[in-house]
């Protein structure tokens, strides 16, 4: 198995194993650990984070980074809330489209600056993180969105139970996120145009030689990431209802953390959206479980999280190096054996 599975799939397998180990560990530590509330709490939070981690993954795959993602989530959450408060009769689909369009608009700004003006992504998005946030402050003009201003269908949406399986409720927001992430994952693994993201991220020059319009690919990645972040903003609005100008603060680093734990290479070209999803779940699971672990105070949460990210990345890097070396040795031995056999014949 070790010499057949691709590193990507191996990683996803390993992440599932880690997920299982974490669950098993806390089950022995916390009384009544597996209950419906555990799943609900994590799925509610993952519904937002999975979208944002996916958005970040698209950008990181092309050797870039989007630090403005938290500000985009905040702005779209607020703008979407203001939109629905002003037009309570607006159709839900139109509202989602509005959120995604606003997000994509910010993505266009980032994409133009990175892909066409050739300013490094970290500089552009560091700046637009601040700029988009100050636009939100201007737009909000000292007001905030409260859940009373929102129509009932919107605030009910995250809690709507689609179906339940053995007492575990699968709610609408979570399922929507999972479907979106699955679609992006399928596209990235099966569709030729989507594979260009990997080509550009692995080797921009080679991609250019192969006839790929590098700039267009990077631009598209930023626009798609913006649209996904916009959808994340919609989810954020639906879940919390009360939106202030600090909405989504800190999401940029959380999304990078989820992607990196999920095995996305920060230098681009490798990683999967499914991995980023499991990364987001893992980060959230540990976050939620530590609160309930009586042995340590809840103040250890962040310290443990930092250690987890570092361990995940270090172990991944070391094991991958070993795996590659082991496969090379094996291949060499096999070739030598074949050569010997041919010589005998």
């Amino acid at each position: 198995m070790l010499d057949r599975l691709s590193p990507q799939n191996l990683r996803i397998l390993a992440l599932f194993v880690v997920l299982g180990l974490v669950l098993a560990f806390f089950a022995t530590q916390v009384d009544n650990y597996f209950n419906a509330r555990l799943f609900n709490r994590i799925s509610a939070s993952v519904a937002i984070m999975a979208l944002i981690a996916t958005a970040q993954t698209l950008v990181i795959l092309t050797r870039n980074i989007d630090l403005s993602i938290g500000s985009v989530v905040g702005f779209t959450a607020f703008a979407t809330g203001a939109m629905v408060a002003a037009n309570p009769g607006i159709s839900p689909l139109l509202l989602v489209a509005y959120a995604m369009a606003v997000g994509a608009g910010f993505g266009v700004v980032n994409g133009l600056l990175v892909a066409y003006a050739r300013v490094p992504a970290i500089i552009v998005t560091l700046a637009t993180m601040a700029i988009f946030r100050s636009l939100l402050v201007e737009f909000a003009d000292g007001k905030s969105i409260t859940s009373q201003k929102l129509p009932a269908w919107l605030t009910d949406y995250p809690n709507t139970v689609l179906f339940s399986l053995a007492g575990v409720e699968f709610r609408a927001a979570f399922m929507t996120s999972v479907v979106v992430v699955a679609l992006v994952h399928l596209a990235l693994t099966r569709l030729r145009p989507a594979r260009k993201l990997y080509a550009v991220g692995s080797n921009p020059e080679a991609a250019e030689m192969a006839g790929i319009n590098q700039r267009a690919v990077v631009f598209t990645a930023f626009v798609l990431a913006g649209a996904l972040a916009g959808l994340g903003g919609f989810m954020f609005l639906a879940r919390f209802g009360n939106i202030t100008v600090v909405a989504g603060l800190g999401f940029e680093l959380k999304s990078v953390a989820a992607a990196v734990v999920g095995g996305v290479n920060i230098f681009g070209g490798s990683g999967t959206v499914a991995g980023a999803l499991i990364g987001a779940i893992l980060v959230d699971l540990i976050d939620t479980s530590l609160v309930r672990w009586p042995l340590v105070s809840e103040f250890w949460r962040e310290a443990v999280l930092g250690a987890l990210i570092l361990t995940a990345v270090a172990v991944d890097a070391i094991l991958m190096r070993r795996l590659i070396a082991w496969r090379l040795r094996r291949e060499k031995a096999r070739n030598a054996a074949r050569a010997a056999a041919e010589a005998q014949a």
Binding site: A257, I266, A303, V304, G306, V313, A314, I318
Partner: peptide, 27 residues
Amino acid sequence: RVGLPSLVVTLATLIGFRGLARVLVED
């Protein structure tokens, strides 16, 4: 020494060092 990208390592310690600060003074 391990050869990990500094962006990732210091992102992890951004969270980790902050976590230790919270452990020391709690809320």
